[in-house]
Nucleic acid binder design. Structure first.
Lengths: 329, 329
DNA sequence: CATACTGGTGGAACCGGTTCCAACGATTCA
DNA sequence: TGAATCGTTGGAACCGGTTCCACCAGTATG
């Protein structure tokens, strides 16, 4: 029976037909667990994602499952919203052999967790997490931060605010902080002194980003532009601007990061990273690792691209003679 | 060893310690497949979702995995974007016994597929799909359509457009059409003749909805309000309004459906359905079915709620003496 | 015509656990 | 003191497949 189901050669045609008939008649259905146990593979990949409801994560995830589906792997999703959940899943994976491969997306790991995972011998790929020694697909967030800030500088902005994730947030990846690094570096290179008051960080949600932005806009010397470390936060900034009566981009320019669907819809200027593609590439890597194919590249860096849209423009001309005038070209 | 791992009683303390020591020393990890095979359960639930990138689907899905995770079930996701993908997965499930339960979200099934699935004896729950004889959790979309349209009528609108899904779309659930039914019914009850020219249906995306809306707005007798069968489409309508220079809600009112995150962010008036909760309830049902607990209710209907926000207002006062005047109260 | 292949088939061993039964020594009870 | 009971443990059977080996009849070879 195994022979006919798995398309072995050396089976007489009549026998095959007879077996198939019996299978149909009995309503026989192979048991996936038994198949896996006997053949030694689960045909399943586990995926660890944080905050699955965030659009950027969804986009990555969509890329992942598309590839896994095409490769005929089951995809077991584990969404984590707290460090405890993360730890529970990671522990479960190290203590129980259950999948052929593991994919971790945007979840910061402790060194020991990574080591424990690697010790199990199960293929592992990271997406949007940069840890030496593990195949991973990432972008250069520092460069991204410079790209966004550089764009605003080129438009003539001198006071540029930043809104991003709280570095102390329990499950925050380091991406936001790296983008902040890029922002700082761009300012320094432009010869602009860092103003800590223009940097606001907090929980990653549009609503909270809006509050942070209001804090910026209500300063006596508000910024003329804000770089938000994610599009979601940029939307919050836009909402805040509307609330306090600032026009975009007339009074305030806003630049985001990620290029989620809504960004294009609303004309948000942003730094595009290939979210879906990062998932697809990571999934492809894990599949080839499972198949024992030639060593995967240790570190795949995806390109970033500035998407200038309608939320960024030159700063307003100062009402009274100010210090700096827009360049005249 | 099985005894000590599974916390059996009747194991001497010293033995337990000794076994645990050996386990640690050998780096022994139980094999999930063997456990499942021997104990007769996979501890896994398969979830079929369409167009996982849509926010409303993501919200439902988030509710599902939260519950499955809490109940310690693995969640195997199958995202389908074409009927072929759907059929492939359904066939795989009927031909191979692999999960303890199946959850189907917003995917229309043929009667025969449903029957084949039920014939396998695997517990099955539907979310946002209404098929007799299967436990399902749904909302009353017709009532939802009336709710939205009724809101616009109450504001004084007489010419109300509709933008929704193409009923011929390969994988479109019937929800959009039922909302259209509700829209029509509300108009009829208000004594307004149906105008087929005000009903536009097409592919479900904001961009396409924008095109459909432009078709409406460029008519010689454009509507003063549009009911979109989903928030995504409502966003498209808003975008279209902006493009052709109509102000919202001054010139045009817009009402959506679902209440996705962005709706609140942008102040979109919409009909709220408990998306996340629908997923959570469905997942809870499948868990209790797997546990052979008392019969689940055959049909759970979740409540709808109108969320009036800033995109709906009374229609503009006709420039010249028109037929109908806004009610004076 | 005996011998060496070959396609085709049945059956045992095995994958790695769980579960149940039998057997054991130590208590407890009569 | 002997029998019944209990806690504890080893071991066999089993879950439902895959894989490999042995064996069959029939054909090509010497």
């Amino acid at each position: 029976m195994s022979r006919v189901l798995n398309g072995h050669p050396h089976v007489r045609d009549e026998t095959r037909r007879r077996v198939l008939a019996v299978i149909r008649q009995l309503g026989y259905r192979p048991n996936r667990l038994a198949v896996g146990l006997a053949s030694g593979s689960t045909r399943a990949v586990a995926v660890l994602v944080p905050f699955l409801s965030r659009p950027s994560v969804v986009a990555r995830f969509a890329g992942i499952i598309a590839v896994l589906d095409a490769e005929r792997f089951d995809c077991i999703v584990c969404n984590v919203e707290t460090p405890e959940q993360r730890d529970r899943h990671l522990r479960a994976w190290t203590e129980l052999h259950r999948v052929d491969g593991i994919l971790i997306v945007s979840v910061p790991l402790r060194r020991e967790q990574l080591d424990a995972l690697r010790a199990t011998g199960v293929p592992l790929v990271l997406i949007d997490v940069d840890a030496a020694g593990v195949p991973r697909v990432v972008v250069d967030d520092v460069a991204g931060g410079r790209l966004a800030t550089g764009h605003l500088l080129a438009l003539g902005h001198r006071r540029i605010g930043f809104v991003g994730d709280d570095p102390e947030g329990p499950l925050n990846s380091a991406a936001s902080s790296r983008r902040l690094d890029g922002y700082r570096r761009a300012l320094r290179e432009a010869g602009i002194a860092a103003d800590a008051g223009l940097v606001r960080r907090g929980e990653h949600s549009a609503a909270n980003a809006a509050e942070l932005a209001i804090g910026l806009l209500e300063r006596p010397d508000p910024p003329t532009a804000v770089f938000a470390a994610s599009d979601t936060q940029a939307l919050g900034v836009m909402q805040a601007a509307e609330k306090v009566g600032r026009r975009i981009p007339g009074d305030l320019s806003v630049v985001g990061f990620d290029d989620i669907d809504t960004a294009e819809l609303l004309g948000l200027t942003t730094v595009r990273q290939p979210l879906q593609r990062s998932g697809a590439i990571g999934a492809g890597l894990i599949c080839s690792l499972i198949r024992d194919e030639p060593a995967a590249p240790a570190r795949t860096v995806l390109p970033l691209q500035l998407m200038p849209r309608t939320t960024s423009a030159p700063p307003p001309v100062p009402a009274l003679a100010g210090a700096a005038c827009p360049p005249e070209k």
